[in-house]
Amino acid sequence: MNRIDKLFQRREKNILSVFYTAGFPGLNDTVTIARHLEAAGADMIEIGIPFSDPIADGPVIQRSNNRAIANGMTLKLLLDQVKQIRQTVTMPLLLMGYLNPVLQYGVEKFFTDAAEAGADGLILPDLPPEEFELKYRKKAMQAGIHVVFLVTPSSADERIRLLDSLSGGFLYAVSLSGVTGTRTSFTTEQDEFLKRLQKLKLKNPVLAGFGISNSESFHAACRLANGAIVGSAFISLLENSHNLQAQIEGFIHNLRSLPVPEGK
């Protein structure tokens, strides 16, 4: 059984997934960071495939992409790193990235090789769901790898149902308009969107992403979703890191801690 499914079978609440960019801050930190994250108590990791033109990302992730590419990061190297990660790390692992590098690698070959390396899921935000269904869905199923789709407040209900039917593992709820890493607090727009998703009675669990940066926004998201994804805030930490292990431990601990209620 796919590790993502196992995770959600075991636990339905407060899932913490952490996104970071492969090959950043150092080329081989991809592996080290995964180990530290598991030790610190993250539930799942999403490793970003660096791309020169990340149109859905804000400045923090853009910078990490540029640095990773300058470090010499490639998709092939990332698959080697995933194999290394899998020697010790048991939590679900997803690869997330823009379509072009995957197209150059070969989409079908990538599904197979990523699964073989030990990845459980893929998130390709600019892969149209219609094209996935027509050309690649069968291959993904054969490889035993989930492809996770994004839904946003601007997606119509019918569209959300389509994305939910194609998505494997979970549904990635981008809970606010905007690119990554540009907001710090959870808003009523996000609340309303997650409530709307609950009413749709979807087949997949829902993880909320974009705008999750601290314990307060993490727990706010967890009240209405199965968990949340933190990305830019974690990459900011890595950007200024001098002791990866200690800082990652502290970061995860702080995120998990219940926030101090307002006014106290």
Binding site: I55, L99, D126, S154, V179
Partner: peptide
């Protein structure tokens, strides 16, 4: 085609 992230879908 339209290879866009879902955030642009409605537009």
């Amino acid at each position: 085609g339209a290879y866009i992230p879902e955030m642009l879908w409605r537009n």
